[in-house]
């Protein structure tokens, strides 16, 4: 192996004009990815970005890597083929809440449960952007959209719950306004062996502006979100005096120093715990909203198992060429 060149984010920018709406959260994500790629220690030609259809799925065109803009919902399936054909590649799925959780929901859960070593980045803006404003599988109940003028009556998915329910081993959630932290999570996702799911809370300025303001607005964010770090106490708040504890039934936000609560009552985040129960509860917590890497557990991957089987069969088999097979077994002369 020759040494990996030192790249900067410019090396990963393509010559294509970026066509998202001005102010779209996707720009920040693009910056986050372009920042993250040089930090991964991989050669540029070994990255493949696969997307489906939707605003998010234009992403591969804006990166100077191998890219495949496929069809609606199918990116995890295409990416699975890429990874199985060449497991050495770093394969990324770029998708959205409509693409990945509605039309492509089946591929999504199966990619996750197989634990194939893909990095799946889902831009969740809780709306259909490219088709101009219909509710999506993550839209809140009551949300008035073009296709729900009286309010959305379809209960939404929580992608974190879904990931862990599908036996996912890596799940991170991050808002779209912090490219540095986003880059760190992407690097961690790349390092993680297995299906790594990153949900990005992405603001669509045109059709669902401010969908996450309740969490991300400067005036509230320190108290509305909690940034989880493995091995650290789950403490948050402007004053760093709030925390999460387990009250025997569920998680709850508490204030240290009130009602006899001390720091000892506050949970320590263990992202590597194989038991997903705590991670599941964390994905369900709404106040504060956990962000960061919620779960990261390494178990065998599908692509490794495929390679093991192939190599094992190659070592054991008496067939060295197809001729050996064609003339094997019950043949006869005429």
């Amino acid at each position: 192996m020759t040494e990996v060149p030192t790249y900067t984010f410019k090396d990963f920018a393509s010559d294509q004009e970026v066509r998202w709406c001005p102010g779209c959260g996707d720009y920040v994500i693009l910056r986050g990815v372009q920042k993250a790629l040089p930090m991964m220690g991989k050669r540029k030609e070994d990255f493949v970005f696969v997307s489906g259809i939707g605003c998010s799925s234009r992403f591969p065109y804006y990166l100077d890597t191998y890219g495949f803009h496929s069809i609606h919902g199918r990116a995890p399936a295409v990416a699975t083929g890429v990874k199985l054909a060449n497991p050495h590649l770093s394969v990324w799925v770029i998708t959205g809440d409509g693409d990945g959780l509605a039309i492509g929901g089946n591929h999504m859960i199966h990619a996750i449960r197989r634990n194939i070593n893909l990095n799946i980045v889902l831009f969740n803006n809780k709306i259909y952007g490219l088709t101009k404003g219909q509710f999506s599988p993550t839209s809140d109940l009551g949300h008035k959209t073009k296709s729900s003028p009286y309010g959305n009556i379809q209960a939404p998915f929580n992608f974190g719950e879904l990931t862990i329910g599908a036996a996912g081993q890596f799940y991170a959630r991050i808002p779209d306004n912090n490219p540095n932290e986003m880059a760190d999570i992407m690097v961690a996702a790349e390092k993680h062996k297995g299906a790594s799911v990153i949900e990005i809370l992405q603001n669509c300025v045109i059709f669902n502006d401010g969908a996450f303001d309740g969490y991300t607005d400067k005036t509230v964010r320190d108290d509305a979100m909690i940034s989880l770090k493995h091995g650290e106490k789950m403490i948050f708040g402007k004053e760093k005096n709030k925390g999460i504890r387990f009250n025997g039934r569920q998680l709850e936000a508490v204030t240290i120093g009130e009602n006899g609560i001390t720091e000892n009552d506050i949970l320590v985040h263990d992202a590597h715990d194989p038991n997903p129960s705590m991670h599941f509860m964390l994905t369900q917590l709404q106040h504060p909203l956990p962000i960061g890497i919620i779960r990261s557990v390494e178990v065998d991957t599908f692509d490794d198992r495929v390679e093991d089987q192939v190599q094992g069969a190659q070592q054991r088999s008496k067939f060295k060429s197809v001729d050996d097979l064609l003339f094997s077994g019950e043949t006869y002369q005429v």
């Binding site: 295409v78 083929g81 199985l84 591929h107 495929v306 069969a313 190659q314 054991r316 197809v322």
Partner: peptide
């Protein structure tokens, strides 16, 4: 598999061909 074949039993027909397209790209 000893010929280096990768067979992938997919979750549905669409994934069957889409994974093949990914492999063709690769």
């Amino acid at each position: 598999l000893h010929f280096g074949v990768r067979t992938f039993q997919a979750e549905d027909e669409i994934s069957g061909i889409c994974s093949a397209l990914g492999a063709a790209f690769t």
